[in-house]
Computed example of a mutant assay.
Amino acid sequence: MSNATSPSAASPAEPLRICIAGAGAIGGTLAVRLSAAGHQVSVLARGQTLQAIRERGLTLHDLHGTTHARPAASQLPEFGMQDVIFLCAKSQDMSALLPQIAPMVGEETVVIPTNNGVPWWYFHREGGRFDGDTVKAVDPDGALSNAVALDRLIGSVLFITAEVDSPGVIRSVNPHLMVLGEPSGAMSERLMRVRAAVEAAGIEARATDRIRDKLWTKIIANISTNPLSVITQGTLQQLYGVPELREVVSQIMRETLLVASSHGARVDIDPLTFLQLGEAMGAFRTSMLQDLERGRPLELASIGDAVLEMAERYAIPMPITRTIVSLARFRGEAAQQQTGQTGQQRAQQTQQPQPAARAA
Score class of each variant (00 low, 15 high):
192 M>G: 13
147 A>N: 07
212 R>H: 02
96 A>Y: 00
103 P>V: 13
339 T>S: 09
259 V>R: 09
337 Q>S: 05
125 R>W: 01
27 G>Y: 02
156 S>M: 15
148 V>E: 03
144 L>F: 11
175 P>V: 12
291 D>H: 04
290 Q>K: 06
59 T>N: 03
104 M>H: 13
49 T>P: 08
16 L>W: 06
288 M>R: 05
20 I>L: 03
66 T>P: 06
335 A>S: 08
100 Q>T: 13
265 A>P: 08
28 G>Q: 04
262 S>R: 15
147 A>R: 07
121 W>I: 13
47 G>Q: 10
239 L>R: 13
72 A>T: 07
109 T>F: 09
194 V>Y: 14
230 V>K: 06
144 L>T: 02
215 L>T: 00
353 P>A: 15
324 I>D: 01
274 F>V: 07
310 M>L: 11
49 T>W: 04
6 S>D: 15
29 T>Y: 10
326 S>I: 08
29 T>N: 03
178 M>D: 09
224 S>W: 11
255 E>W: 08
75 Q>S: 14
2 S>A: 12
328 A>F: 02
13 A>I: 15
152 R>T: 01
97 L>R: 02
92 Q>K: 04
148 V>W: 11
180 L>C: 04
315 A>V: 12
186 A>Y: 10
298 L>W: 00
352 Q>L: 13
50 L>T: 12
137 A>C: 03
252 I>N: 11
59 T>Y: 01
84 V>K: 13
33 R>D: 08
282 G>C: 13
248 V>K: 05
307 V>W: 03
222 N>R: 02
324 I>Y: 04
261 S>M: 10
56 R>I: 05
331 R>E: 10
278 G>I: 09
301 A>T: 07
95 S>K: 11
83 D>Y: 02
36 A>R: 02
124 H>L: 09
165 D>Y: 02
321 T>P: 15
359 A>G: 05
302 S>V: 14
149 A>H: 15
263 H>S: 05
338 Q>V: 00
73 A>T: 05
82 Q>C: 05
211 I>Y: 08
215 L>Y: 12
329 R>K: 04
42 S>E: 15
47 G>E: 08
264 G>Q: 10
232 T>R: 13
343 G>A: 13
171 R>F: 01
127 G>A: 07
199 E>K: 14
150 L>I: 12
234 G>R: 04
256 T>Q: 09
336 Q>M: 12
185 G>L: 01
278 G>V: 03
190 R>Q: 10
45 A>R: 05
97 L>C: 04
266 R>W: 03
169 V>N: 08
285 R>S: 08
303 I>W: 00
115 N>D: 07
243 P>M: 11
55 E>L: 07
193 R>C: 00
275 L>G: 09
